[in-house]
Design a protein around this nucleic acid. Structure first.
Length: 293
DNA sequence: AAGGTTAGCAACCGCACATCT
DNA sequence: CAGATGTGCGGTTGCTAACCT
């Protein structure tokens, strides 16, 4: 279906850098009227720009909640970690970094972090046969698997401490419907995983995993069944399911730890202090105690 | 001092998806 | 249901300042 380009050159709309006067017009208009339809906004605000340009200027530069200044070490770490999980989903990454825009993060990645990682031998291999180092992807896979494991523990902890829990019945609805339990779990050491699991990052991971499960390739070394917590209509079987689930999860988690121990040990050694996640020993102690009393 | 190169970033472009009619 | 329209997103471009020769 064809459609006229938003920024039609023939209409003589202005392009390029914004002037302070244009900024003021845009800010004043949005602050008093909201942006409404971006297409109509330029005309209403007295700007000779296309709506798309206005939206971009507002969301990336003029929005009052935008955080300016250099990225902190914490933000850098988060970007690297999140990028390892979701890839170039800049908007998802930005959603985890309050005050930062996707464009800003994208630029920062392309101009700073990419180079840093390349220097560390952690970036995607350069074009060419058998070139480069697989460590980064390998690490991302394991960090991702670990993220899921911790999220499962957090969810189990939350559901078992929430009497009459009405947690989600499927993995895809965990995020929205287990918020009460999630809130209760937020004082627990592993709550960061629950928050991540409940965010777009978790969604993205679940989708990727579902996609990866489709090919006829044999299953991954560590079996990762979808997490199925009891739903609202399953109360009769909820108790037994919960026990089975806890046992299965514990067993699986031990398998995971056994299998992953060496790999993760290598990663931690290689990238010393690089991980967003607490060390496994700490998690195993804190989360297992809470979840499987 | 001048010209060339590089780095950083704002802005644009085009595609994909969501929503509306 | 199909087409039109609006919006968001990721990739890319182009400008500018800093740095180098």
């Amino acid at each position: 279906m064809g459609r006229a380009p938003c920024c039609d050159r023939a209409r003589g709309l202005k392009k390029g850098p914004w002037t302070p006067e244009e900024d003021k017009l845009l800010v004043d208009y949005i602050q008093s009227n909201g942006h409404g339809s971006w297409r109509l906004l330029p005309k209403l605000a007295g700007l000779n720009r296309c709506g798309k340009s206005c939206r971009l200027r507002w969301t990336n530069y003029l929005r009052p909640d935008i955080k300016r200044g250099p990225f902190t070490a914490e933000e850098q770490k988060s970007i690297v970690q999140l990028h390892a999980i979701v890839g170039n989903k800049w908007s998802m990454i930005a959603a985890q970094l309050p005050g930062r825009t996707d464009n800003e993060i994208k630029n920062y990645w392309n101009t700073h972090l990419k180079k840093q990682l390349r220097r560390m031998g952690l970036d995607e291999p350069p074009p060419g046969p058998a070139a480069g180092c697989p460590a980064a992807r390998h690490m991302a896979q394991w960090e991702t698997a670990r993220l899921e494991a911790e999220a499962r523990l957090s969810l189990l902890a939350a559901s078992s401490s929430y009497s009459g829990a009405t947690a989600a019945a499927t993995t895809t609805s965990v995020a929205s419907s287990s918020s009460t339990a999630a809130e209760k779990a937020c004082n627990k050491p592993a709550d960061i995983f629950l928050r991540l699991w409940s965010s777009d990052i978790g969604d993205s991971f679940r989708r990727n995993r579902a996609a990866a499960a489709k090919p006829a390739v044999p299953a991954a070394p560590v079996k990762q069944e979808p997490l199925a917590l009891p739903g609202p209509g399953d109360e009769s079987s909820a108790a037994s399911n919960e026990t089975e689930l806890a046992e299965a999860a514990l067993e699986e988690y031990h398998m995971f730890l056994d299998f992953a121990g060496e790999e993760l040990g290598l990663f931690h050694g290689r990238h010393g202090g690089f991980s967003l996640f607490p060390p496994l020993e700490v998690l195993a102690e804190a989360s297992l105690d809470t979840a499987f009393k």
